[in-house]
Write a protein that binds this DNA or RNA. Structure first.
Lengths: 149, 149
DNA sequence: ATCTAAATGTTAGAATTCTAATTATGTCTA
DNA sequence: TAGACATAATTAGAATTCTAACATTTAGAT
């Protein structure tokens, strides 16, 4: 029914606010001065290593041009390295250095602690509901991506 | 259980990607050259009129300083007006002009059409699940906000 | 083999957003 | 009332991100 879709459109608008509410409060600052995109990039490479610039830019949600800046900065800080593609010389993989892996682990740990603290005021049942909702959204994202359009 | 919270922290990361997947594709461009923040602001004022700059800046997800720029731009384009607060002269309300209301209606309509089209590949059951998930998230956001921290 | 079109990463300049300081107003306490 | 402090909006300059154009490389068609 079209009603369903309109309701979804109205609800989607709140997702950025939800993110804001969840992240608000203390910043996750390491000694390195990493901005939000740099942290997201480190985390994503940590979990899905050895992909291309374009791939990572999509995942982090940046335009390719912007992502070049982020990769440059991370490389300058000694956290990632560029590896030229073997099969396709246009491509360029990003890999974490040892320092990069350590930074990623620390960011991950702090992020989880922060989220856990923010969720303190929810009951077990509410946590369960929230988790299921997030799973549904992630599943939907995959469907939208795979079924193309 | 702490497991639940860690799972949530891992899932939350996908929300921006979901937004990206949903919004990707054609831009919603009116004759006016409005950026994303300007559109969000118009929509929010349209649905919740007569609030203050700070209130809107939070809703739109911008720093107060950044929001001043957005309000200036919308005012220059004749879409909103600033109304000095009656009780508190520090405050400043934003209201839509007639042109602003018309622009908001058009943006709303195009946004809904765009979302509906993107959701075309989902079944009715999947739509229902997605809607329920979004409702749960919005409910959770309100709880987090109200129960403070 | 050659031509055309597409994909990858980069660059440059503009647009957007952030942080911190500033001004003006309001609130609270002594 | 005076003083100290908090809040609302703005400003200025830096940081981040975007868009469009570019060079290089690859893929596909003829």
């Amino acid at each position: 029914m079209s009603n369903q879709r309109e309701a979804i459109a109205n609800l989607v608008v709140f997702l950025p606010m939800f993110m804001g509410t969840l992240l608000e409060g203390k910043r996750i600052n390491t000694k390195l001065r990493l901005n939000y995109s740099e942290k997201r990039t480190l985390m994503y490479i940590y979990n899905h290593g050895g992909r291309t610039m374009t791939e990572y830019s999509k995942r982090v949600g940046l335009a390719r041009g912007s992502f070049t800046t982020v990769a440059d900065s991370l490389e300058d800080k000694g956290l990632v390295g560029r590896v030229p593609g073997a099969d396709d010389r246009r491509k360029c993989m990003l890999v974490l250095t040892e320092a990069g892996k350590e930074a990623a682990r620390e960011i991950d740990s702090r992020f989880k602690k922060h989220i856990a603290a923010r969720l303190n005021c929810l009951t077990e049942e509410e946590l369960e509901d929230l988790k299921n909702a997030l799973v549904t959204i992630e599943t939907t994202r995959e469907k939208l991506r795979d079924r193309g359009n």
